[in-house]
Design a protein around this nucleic acid. Sequence first.
DNA 1: TCAAAAGTGTTTCCCATACACCCATGC
DNA 2: GCATGGGTGTATGGGAAACACTTTTGA
Lengths: 254, 254
Amino acid sequence: MTYQCTKEERAFLDQYDASRYERPSVTTDIAVFTLDDLDRLSLLLIRRGQFPYKDRWALPGGFLHTGKESIDECAQRELMEETGIKDAFFSQLYTFGAPDRDPRTTVISVAYMALIPKHKLKVKAGDDAKEADIFQIKYDVDGMQFSNGDITIRESDLAFDHADVIRMAITRLRNRIDYEDDAFNLLKDPAEFTISELKRIHETIKNKTLDLPNFRKSFLRDYVKTEKVKELDKTIVSKGKPAKLYKWMGGDVL
Amino acid sequence: MTYQCTKEERAFLDQYDASRYERPSVTTDIAVFTLDDLDRLSLLLIRRGQFPYKDRWALPGGFLHTGKESIDECAQRELMEETGIKDAFFSQLYTFGAPDRDPRTTVISVAYMALIPKHKLKVKAGDDAKEADIFQIKYDVDGMQFSNGDITIRESDLAFDHADVIRMAITRLRNRIDYEDDAFNLLKDPAEFTISELKRIHETIKNKTLDLPNFRKSFLRDYVKTEKVKELDKTIVSKGKPAKLYKWMGGDVL
DNA sequence: TCAAAAGTGTTTCCCATACACCCATGC
DNA sequence: GCATGGGTGTATGGGAAACACTTTTGA
């Protein structure tokens, strides 16, 4: 945005007191979804190394470097710092701004969600030696639970209002999967995938089994016919009849 | 959120330097939609009385009163200050955070949209004597235009990135109208309305004419059968056959 | 030859669309 | 009467869901 201004306006800007209004801190929080080895919906959580909520599990994220980056870039940078991923698919979710959601001071949090295949996720400690791990998302009467095979976290154990963020992210993901191409971002290799693999991703996100013949029909109609996906000449065999391989032609992640 | 903390944590919080990170300003911008007397989609715009973008037309909104309100409350307060409306329907849209969207300093803007019937909209100048008016939204080859019968504003004349906000708001509104109950918020009187009136609202938002018999069928199925709307014993006559009146039972605005 | 997974074809049903037609009022 | 909008009923078509059936591999 180029902004031309008059002399009068320039004078105003020069003397503008940016601190006339008290300012809140702004952070981004990112719900990073992936599928585990058994195709179950999973989420990246970080164990906080600092107050507030020290030692509690939380979504990755951090403070905006004001003036140096946009909020999108902030989310991208935090994702990079905590997962080593540069070009993941991510999408803004919602902005949380209750005055008491952080005990330090008013913190406005812009929430994002990201979809990343597990093998790309190099879960690593951040610069302040935080723990990080991928947790399967389960449900019981009390709500969500997060389990990495070792420990189980209840949603009430999470830091801040991150349980709300995660709930909203899952809801949004479920709604988006029907009309957006999100599922392709969870393929192991978008350049070589089978219809069944894509179907399993849909099933995981929608949390119900789908009919393969019908799934194939709509896949062929919506993606192959429209050339968003190209049919390859290769097949892959594992058990049963070999499966045809397809290649996702759309903007290969972003 | 009640936050219990240890002595150790309390000590940390007490010495926490809130200004360690430079903070951006946070504002809300609100796209207030209504229908004009001829049922055309219209939008409230405010003429800015101050720099930056002095004398340009912009969406109503303003700075967050940090610590005193949530961002939702901020949007609500600004709406109240500029329109006199306390309990309008509104919904968070998206958060805009490009570093250069405001020439003063980094400003994060949380955008909202609101739906308000025109007779409730007391358009009034704000506390700093701004002009305010309702503009019909039109389209031509260059994009959107906003006209109040007196003057016409091109989208490139708007302040900040407000043209982007408005475009996104309209898109969202069009998508939501199919699966949310948004249209009821634009009825003159939700306690007494006809099917035709509701249909006209849908037609305006979707920008195409609908078939009345079919609209009635889905209205009866989705709302009357489910008791979200109650059929009244009254009818109203204007021209032609008197029309049955209905009452919206859902959370009467919010 | 059998299990397992891929792939094809068919039937059914719902729902959106289109449209023909009748009804009640003011003039 | 007739114009005007409200209201009812019917026919058609496309897509989603359910499912029977065939094909191709490994063991």
